[in-house]
């Protein structure tokens, strides 16, 4: 089938998509956007997290056919031309990135959280990010990054 959707603000049309393949496969293998990662393909790790029509989802659990006409935002669409998104910058500054395989998904999930809750408590952060596994960091610096991003976004009045 032919699939048309908007990815990071750009309308993309792709032919010969098998409708049962996942949005993750479409992004990674057909659109050349490997930012969303494939660590389990069953919704358990969150490394494939993207925004689909403003909702945080696992791209591995969305069928290609379901995103016809949809608007998708991936980690690749967050940074500006010169500056990183404040959440990306906070992950860097807090040392929340080691191997980085979980990072794109976590950053998208953090952006989602802070859009909905500008000043989350630690337990709200933990509940919101529980679907994003990280094997390297032990999560301490990820929490630091989220708190740092929240403060900076507040300061910048982005909410």
């Amino acid at each position: 089938m032919r699939l048309t959707c908007t990815v990071n603000g750009k309308v993309e049309t792709i032919d010969d998509v098998w409708p049962g393949e996942s949005l993750l496969y479409v992004l990674r293998e057909r659109m050349g956007l490997p930012g969303a990662k494939n660590a389990c393909e069953q919704g358990e790790c969150g490394s494939c997290s993207v925004h689909l029509d403003g909702i945080l989802v696992c791209a591995c659990l969305v069928a290609a056919g379901q995103v016809e006409g949809a608007e998708i935002k991936t980690v690749e669409g967050l940074a500006g031309a010169t500056d990183l998104h404040p959440v990306q910058q906070a992950y860097l500054d807090a040392g929340a990135v080691q191997c980085g395989f979980c990072t794109p998904g976590l950053i998208v999930a953090t952006v989602d959280l802070l859009e909905k809750n500008a000043d989350p408590s630690d337990s709200e952060i933990r509940e919101a990010l529980a679907g994003n596994l990280c094997r390297c960091t032990g999560y301490s610096k990820i929490l630091d990054a989220v708190r740092l991003a929240a403060v900076r976004l507040e300061g910048a009045g982005k909410h």
Binding site: R28, G32, L33, P34, G35, A36, K37, N38, T74, V75, E76, L78, A79, L84, Q88, Q89, Y91, L92, D93, G95, V97, G100, F101, T103, P104, I107
Partner: peptide
């Protein structure tokens, strides 16, 4: 010093190529 990773920017933007991303 607590120096930031040189590959960090690539990793937070999704541009860092893992072995599963090659083509």
């Amino acid at each position: 010093e607590s120096v930031a990773r040189p590959d960090g920017t690539l990793k937070v933007t999704g541009d860092f190529a893992y072995s599963s991303d090659l083509w």
